[in-house]
């Protein structure tokens, strides 16, 4: 915690090496969170870079009650939400032309190597609504407790718990429908 405080003080003074330290330590966490929430690698790269830049510019807004990691995740989740909103507005006004090209038929049969490689937990999480994705990512990927998630999402803990319950149910149903059980056995066997 003392180390973090020193880093915050150095960033407040405009020390670039402190920013580099922050990226070395939390860069992967921030990028992976954005990638899981946005389902797009390039957008996630943009958002994660923007998150560190914002943290550098607004370091005075950091409150020491939370950890730097939580604060950075909070910034990146807010940025992801705003990107998703922007994308939704874009979709509303700019309708992309629907091509005549039919989707490629699946060449991979359930149980085959290709099929197992294709079916990823990440993709299944990506099918959930953003609000569920957030709690699932924070709970499972970051191994956070519900109280901590509530702090990051600025929501009551009860809300987080119920969201997590519903998200888990939905994910489980999705995985079962997608033959995840079969794939699990395939991987284990």
């Amino acid at each position: 915690m003392d180390e973090e405080r020193q880093i915050v003080e150095r960033i407040q003074k405009g020390d670039e090496s402190a920013l580099a330290w922050l990226m070395d330590r939390y860069g992967n966490d921030v990028l992976r969170t954005a990638a899981l929430l946005l389902k797009d690698r390039h957008l996630a790269e943009d958002v994660s870079q923007e998150a560190f830049l914002l943290a550098f510019q607004r370091v005075n807004q950091f409150r020491s009650e939370s950890s730097i990691r939580s604060w950075l995740l909070q910034i990146s989740i807010n940025l992801c939400r705003s990107r998703m909103r922007r994308a939704a507005w874009k979709r509303l006004f700019i309708r992309e032309p629907v091509g005549d090209v039919a989707p490629e038929p699946s060449l991979t049969q359930p149980g085959s190597t290709g099929w197992a490689e294709k079916l990823t937990l990440r993709e299944e999480i990506g099918k959930l609504p953003l609000t569920y994705r957030e709690v699932i990512v924070l709970f499972y990927f970051h191994d956070m407790r519900t109280a901590e998630i509530a702090g990051i999402l600025k929501e009551p803990e009860g809300t987080v718990k119920s969201k997590l319950l519903r998200a888990r149910k939905r994910l489980k149903r999705q995985l079962e429908e997608g033959g995840w059980d079969h794939e699990q056995r395939f991987l284990e066997g």
Partner: peptide, 25 residues
């Protein structure tokens, strides 16, 4: 969690990205 972390292992915040952030800062 483990499974998810395994899948995300290859997603890395690269040196190039770090440099770009420092330049913009």
């Amino acid at each position: 969690g483990e499974r998810l972390r395994e899948e995300m292992n290859e997603t890395l915040f690269s040196e190039k990205m770090k440099k770009a952030v420092v330049v913009r800062a």
